[in-house]
Design a protein around this nucleic acid. Structure first.
Lengths: 110, 110
DNA sequence: TATGAATACCTAAATAAATTAGGTATAGTG
DNA sequence: CACTATACCTAATTTATTTAGGTATTCATA
C-alpha cells in the first residue's frame, strides 16, 4: 500500500476475498500474490498484514494451519465457517464501493 | 462515511471530482449532494470535510468565494488552475482503484 | 564459504484520516 | 415559540496504516 493510499480500509475485504478464492494462504504469500495480481499497484506491508491476520483469527473469521518447511514454520490462514459467511458481505461491500465511486466518475447529466 | 468504512482516503478525490463537475460548491452543499448522489450510502461528516477543505485551500488546490446569504455566510470552494491539473490525477487514481479491486472480485482462472 | 537476497514470521512507535462530540449562529416551519 | 434545517467550525479520540525495527532459515553467487 503506497502513496497517500486510497486502499485504506480495503485490506481486510481483500484478504478475505483472496482466501475465499484461493482456499488457504500464508502471510508472506499474500504479500507476494497481491503484488503480482495488481502488477505492483498494491503493496501490502507486513506491519499492516500480520496484526490484521491475528485480529481476524481472534474474531473467529480465520483459522490457522501450521506447516513445517524444513526448520521454518509457515502459518496458513483459511476462512472458518463464520468467515465464509462474512466473505460474501465483504465482497458485496467492495462491489458497492465500485458502484458508488462510479457515480462520481460518471455523473448523471440528465 | 459510515460503518467501518471502505471510503477512507477517498474523501479528497471525491470532493475534487465533485468540484470538477459542478464548478463551485460550499461545504454543507457537498455533504447533502453526496448523500443524495449515493442514496445515503456515503455520509460525509463535517468533522472530516471542513478540515480537508481548509487543507486543500492551503495547498493551493482550492480557492474560496464568500457569499452572503442574508446574515449568514456561505463559503464556495472551486478548483484553482493547479487544482484542475490535480483533478485529472485524482480521477485516474479512482479509476485505477476500481480496476484493481475488480482484479480481486473477478480473479483470472486461466 | 561467507555474503547478501529471499523467505517467513513478528512488534511498537509514529502518522494519517477519519469519527465523535461538541460549539456558534441564522433561517424556516408547525 | 420551539424545533429542524442550514452553515460554519474545532478538539479529542479512534482506527488503519506506515515506518522501522527485530529474529531466523534457505538459497544463490562471487
Amino acid at each position: 500500500m503506497n502513496k497517500s493510499s486510497l486502499y485504506k480500509g480495503l485490506l481486510e475485504p481483500i484478504i478475505i476475498q483472496l482466501l475465499n478464492t484461493n482456499g488457504k494462504m500464508y502471510g508472506y504469500e499474500i504479500t507476494q500474490r497481491v503484488k503480482e495480481i495488481t502488477a505492483g499497484e498494491l503493496l501490502i506491508t507486513e506491519g499492516a498484514l500480520y496484526p490484521l491476520l491475528h485480529k481476524l483469527e481472534a474474531e473467529g473469521l480465520l483459522e490457522v494451519e501450521i506447516e513445517n518447511i524444513g526448520n521454518r514454520i509457515r502459518k496458513y490462514y483459511l476462512l472458518t465457517k463464520n468467515g465464509k459467511k462474512h466473505s460474501s458481505l465483504a465482497i458485496d461491500e467492495m462491489k458497492k464501493l465500485i458502484t458508488t465511486l462510479s457515480l462520481f466518475l460518471n455523473p448523471k447529466t440528465v
